[in-house]
Amino acid sequence: MKGTHLGEFEELVLLTTAVTDGNAYTVTIVAEIEKNTGRKLTLSTVHTALVRLEKKGFVNSYMGGTTKERGGRRRRLYKITAPGYTALNQARETRTKMWEKMPELSFDFKGLT
């Protein structure tokens, strides 16, 4: 496999996939991200990220059921894999570790002195 690095946006998408487990496909992920972060994304952006995640082995996909709106077309549901979960976890741990090392910072507000 090429790089297994998890980018910021990929991390967000992967996280959302894990959160909406069982009903995670492009449209729901877009809606979930918008709800939680306010970021307005297009379907294609998220889909590209999902394709990439699948190539890296962080998610699996399988075809799910369909609805009337989809005109009989099935949806592809994405599910986080164990390596994906580990990668997410690692990302979180790195962040936590770094946060723990954070010293007391004082900020100069230049305009006030």
């Binding site: 496909y25 379907l43 889909h47 394709v51 075809m63 709106e69 989809r70 005109g71 949806r75």
Partner: peptide, 15 residues
């Protein structure tokens, strides 16, 4: 990808 993408697009459209 065709079926999935077309389905997603329709869902988005009707929404």
């Amino acid at each position: 990808y065709l079926e999935e993408v077309q389905g997603d697009l329709r869902e988005w459209y009707f929404e």
